[in-house]
Design a protein around this nucleic acid. Structure first.
Length: 291
DNA sequence: GCGTCCAGGTCTACC
DNA sequence: GGTAGACCTGGACGC
């Protein structure tokens, strides 16, 4: 077992980042009894996957790597990536100060949304969150990882590569992953990524405008407005609200007396957060998670 | 046990 | 560009 020490920004909360949304609950992510975040990473399709456990210490973070050989720089990069240690949130906190809303997020150093080691992993998982209960999302992702993910030296499984997913036909996704109508979408996506026609990793530092990038994301069948805006948040763009039925219902209860209202009204409520309004609504609606 | 509803939507056809 | 209907699954709920 190798241990790597990782420094964190001054304004960082391990707890509020790891539990920022449901990703920690989807394989290969896991939180163990000691509140360590477990995940599996791999650079390159031909490399062995590596299991990593991250925990908070007084001085920052420690990542424990359960492998005989691994690329130290890759593991460091992935820990920094999934916890967004290199992302700047001063603009968000300034918007909170300016608006006087969602103050708790600034006080708790919240706002960092947990993400997977690759955009590919986040993309597939996001498609599995659409039009279903969370338990079904969890079931689909677990089935996918268990059946197609390569095993690490310690027996954990990695998220499947695009190549592994492209090697399976639609029947696998219907009958074994239980992805239902999403099955042909997953096959098509895997084939596009495996062939090199689509590279989701480029979305991280794309020079496209947010509107153009959203349009590119929506070329993936199964990715609509909600999924694209959720992915935009995960690549660090918070202009879109990523409204789904849960977020809407939470807004109605919290800010509209329990009555339905238009999406436009919701958008206007967070208008003063500018490019951080997607992050603002998420923090606003999840404050009670941490009570 | 059975039927219905609905959940962290999207696609397609049609107007 | 806007909208209705279809699409899968599985848990919750009422009977």
């Amino acid at each position: 077992m190798f241990k790597l020490e990782i420094g964190t920004p001054a304004r960082f909360s391990y707890r509020y980042t790891v539990r920022s949304h449901g990703w920690y609950d989807l394989a290969p992510f896991e939180i163990d009894a000691d509140d360590r975040l477990l995940f599996v990473t791999r650079r390159g399709t031909n490399e062995e996957p590596v299991a990593v456990a991250v925990e908070a210490t007084k001085g920052g973070l420690v990542a424990s790597v359960d492998a005989s050989a691994f690329d130290r720089d890759s593991v460091m990069r992935d820990v920094r990536h999934i916890l967004r240690l290199d992302e700047e949130f001063d603009g968000f906190y300034a918007a909170i100060t300016r608006t006087g809303r969602v103050v708790w997020a600034r006080e708790k150093n919240a706002g960092r949304l947990l993400r997977g080691p690759t955009v590919w992993e986040d993309l597939v998982k996001t498609m599995c969150t659409t039009n279903c209960s969370w338990s079904l999302t969890r079931s689909m992702v677990t089935n996918l990882v268990d059946k197609l993910g390569d095993e690490t030296a310690c027996g954990r499984r990695a998220f499947p590569t695009a190549e592994a997913m492209a090697s399976r036909r639609e029947a696998f996704y219907r009958d074994e992953m239980r992805a239902g109508y999403r099955s042909p979408y997953l096959v098509e996506l895997a084939e596009r990524v495996a062939s090199g026609e689509l590279d989701p990793e480029t979305w991280l530092d794309s020079e496209l405008s947010t509107a153009e990038l959203k349009k590119e994301m929506k070329t993936v069948k199964g990715v609509g407005d909600y999924a694209a805006e959720n992915l935009l948040k995960l690549v660090g763009r918070y202009d879109g609200l990523a409204l789904d039925s849960w977020l809407r219902s939470q807004f109605y209860e919290r800010h509209n007396g329990g009555k339905k209202c238009s999406d436009k009204k919701i958008d206007m409520y967070y208008h003063n957060f500018g490019n951080f309004r997607g992050l603002a609504i998420w923090c606003d609606m999840t404050e009670s998670w941490f009570d």
